[in-house]
Computed example of a mutant assay.
Amino acid sequence: MTGDAPVRIVVADDQEVVRAGFTALLGTQPDLLVVGTAADGSAAVRASREHRPDVVLMDVRMPAMDGIEATRVITAAPRAPRVLMLTTFDLDEHVYDALVAGASGFLLKDVTAERLFDAVRVVAAGEALLAPTVTRRLIGEFARLRPRPSGPSPLLEALTPRETDVLRLVAEGLTNAEIAARLVVGEETVKTHVSRVLRKLGLRDRVQAVVTAYETGLVHPRLSR
């Protein structure tokens, strides 16, 4: 997305009424443009390649290829669009898998129109759509489902000590303001460090940063108390 061009969107859902509803809602905004729709994951992959959207609204459960596998395929491509998952349940196990697969966030299907618009804009701008509370729940899933890494990965050697500290705090679910308070620096400084971490590690957003921090062993999840 560049300049004043609208955010280009593909809507993928196996229910026609959902596709039509989201398409109609998004069409009311001058800065949002639905360029394609898809009724299953395979069609979502094709639509993404054909229309080159900025954002794909992706249902988790679809025939032929589910939303998780479609997300994995779409986000593996060069200059991939952001994927925003649509689900009926608040961070269920399928959404967790989708975040690991490369999704930038999730929305419940009963989302309000304004929340939908804001979510698409946030994700298109390169931010992750995960509240700190959701990040902490994602961490809990790592504690429950993932094997504990043996130690930090050489991948993290590209980071400075301060960038490593910032990544560790991002992985703990802290907001930029909370990180700034913890490190006694300005919030803009934290944003700069986060941007550098993402760039150096080749990550799209904070969701991937959380995943990377745990998978490389930088942070070990605490089991529920």
Rank of each mutant, 00 (worst) to 15 (best):
T37P: 08
A180P: 13
A177P: 05
E93C: 02
R72H: 07
E141I: 10
E187S: 08
F117N: 09
L108V: 05
A171F: 02
P221V: 04
V122S: 15
G126T: 07
K200T: 00
L201I: 04
R144L: 01
P30V: 06
K200C: 00
G202T: 02
V56C: 02
M62Y: 01
L169T: 01
L218P: 02
Y96H: 06
A44V: 05
V83G: 09
E93H: 08
L218G: 04
A158M: 10
L138N: 01
V95G: 09
S104P: 05
A177L: 13
G140L: 11
L32Q: 06
L25Y: 13
V45Y: 08
R46M: 12
R46W: 13
A43W: 02
V184Q: 13
G3W: 13
Y214E: 04
V219L: 11
E114T: 10
V207I: 02
P132T: 04
A181R: 15
T28Y: 10
D165H: 08
E127T: 06
V197L: 00
E188A: 12
D92R: 12
V210P: 05
V170Q: 02
D13Y: 14
A213Q: 05
A38W: 03
L201M: 10
G140H: 05
D165R: 10
E188L: 04
G21E: 11
G140R: 08
L203H: 03
F117A: 14
A20S: 12
R52E: 15
G202I: 09
V170D: 00
R19P: 03
E141F: 14
D13I: 14
G41C: 04
V120I: 14
L33M: 15
R199M: 06
V120Y: 15
A128W: 03
R225K: 09
D59L: 10
D40V: 03
R72Y: 00
A103E: 01
